[in-house]
Amino acid sequence: MPPPPPPYGSPYGGGYGGADPLSGMPPLAETGRRVLARLIDWVIVAVPLAIIGIPFDIYHRATQNGNGFDNTVNSLNGGSQLVFQLITIVAYVAYDTVLTAKDGRTIGKRLMKLRVAMLNDGSTPPMSQSLLRAVVLWLPALICCACLWPLLILILIVVDKPYKQGLHDKAAKTVVVTVPQ
């Protein structure tokens, strides 16, 4: 005799034995196209930030001799590095949030013919879910884990079954799908 169904439904839609939330949606995006779209988005935000960083003197501080920890502490004490860090966080999170909430596509996703969709019904994520997705994606990478966080997200996208979700997708209950040609 099979075990009884759990007393709750899936947090991603469709209860136990329910319909697949992806039925009727375009196919999930290929990992390579997702990575390329993210790199395009990163460059689109990074280039203006690199120019904005000049008055904050971030390049001079980065090339100073001495202990890296001391330089970081001195930079933060000076305040301009902290201000630039906040500008960077706001820029990446706002870019991702606003464009995802608009039509599910950042510029990178548009070029790669991808879009973000709510897992339960395929709709464009509302502003709240787009913000949550962007914060989980960018905040750890920009504050402490610039190399490890993107790698962790990539690994999760590759191994996650069946929806290819990174932590940011799981938090916001979204998937990335291809846009029909």
Score class of each variant (00 low, 15 high):
residue 31 T to W: 14
residue 32 G to F: 06
residue 33 R to K: 13
residue 35 V to Q: 04
residue 36 L to Y: 01
residue 39 L to P: 08
residue 39 L to I: 15
residue 40 I to C: 04
residue 41 D to V: 09
residue 42 W to I: 13
residue 42 W to K: 04
residue 44 I to C: 06
residue 45 V to L: 03
residue 47 V to Y: 03
residue 48 P to W: 02
residue 51 I to S: 04
residue 52 I to F: 10
residue 53 G to M: 04
residue 53 G to Q: 02
residue 56 F to H: 00
residue 56 F to N: 00
residue 59 Y to R: 07
residue 62 A to E: 10
residue 63 T to C: 12
residue 64 Q to Y: 11
residue 65 N to K: 14
residue 65 N to H: 12
residue 66 G to S: 04
residue 66 G to T: 05
residue 67 N to Y: 12
residue 68 G to V: 15
residue 68 G to F: 14
residue 69 F to T: 10
residue 69 F to K: 07
residue 70 D to W: 07
residue 73 V to Q: 13
residue 73 V to C: 05
residue 73 V to D: 08
residue 73 V to I: 13
residue 74 N to I: 07
residue 74 N to C: 03
residue 76 L to E: 13
residue 78 G to W: 00
residue 78 G to F: 00
residue 79 G to N: 08
residue 79 G to L: 06
residue 80 S to E: 14
residue 85 Q to E: 02
residue 86 L to M: 13
residue 86 L to P: 02
residue 90 V to P: 09
residue 90 V to E: 10
residue 91 A to Q: 06
residue 91 A to D: 05
residue 93 V to W: 00
residue 94 A to Y: 02
residue 95 Y to M: 09
residue 97 T to I: 00
residue 98 V to E: 03
residue 98 V to I: 14
residue 100 T to W: 01
residue 100 T to D: 04
residue 100 T to G: 02
residue 103 D to R: 12
residue 105 R to L: 11
residue 105 R to H: 08
residue 105 R to W: 08
residue 107 I to S: 02
residue 107 I to K: 00
residue 107 I to R: 03
residue 110 R to Y: 08
residue 110 R to S: 07
residue 111 L to V: 01
residue 112 M to K: 06
residue 112 M to N: 05
residue 113 K to P: 03
residue 115 R to Q: 04
residue 115 R to F: 00
residue 116 V to F: 01
residue 117 A to D: 03
residue 120 N to C: 10
residue 121 D to G: 07
residue 123 S to L: 03
residue 124 T to V: 11
residue 127 M to H: 06
residue 127 M to T: 13
residue 127 M to I: 15
residue 129 Q to Y: 11
residue 130 S to E: 06
residue 133 R to M: 12
residue 134 A to C: 02
residue 135 V to M: 12
residue 136 V to R: 05
residue 136 V to M: 09
residue 137 L to F: 14
residue 137 L to V: 12
residue 138 W to S: 02
residue 139 L to N: 14
residue 139 L to R: 09
residue 141 A to G: 07
residue 141 A to Y: 04
residue 141 A to D: 05
residue 142 L to K: 02
residue 142 L to P: 01
residue 148 L to Y: 06
residue 150 P to A: 10
residue 150 P to T: 07
residue 150 P to F: 08
residue 151 L to I: 14
residue 152 L to V: 15
residue 153 I to D: 13
residue 154 L to S: 01
residue 155 I to D: 07
residue 155 I to S: 00
residue 156 L to D: 03
residue 156 L to R: 03
residue 158 V to D: 04
residue 159 V to N: 03
residue 159 V to G: 02
residue 161 K to V: 12
residue 161 K to A: 11
residue 162 P to A: 01
residue 165 Q to L: 04
residue 165 Q to G: 01
residue 166 G to V: 05
residue 173 K to M: 15
residue 174 T to H: 04
residue 174 T to V: 03
residue 174 T to N: 05
residue 176 V to C: 08
residue 177 V to G: 02
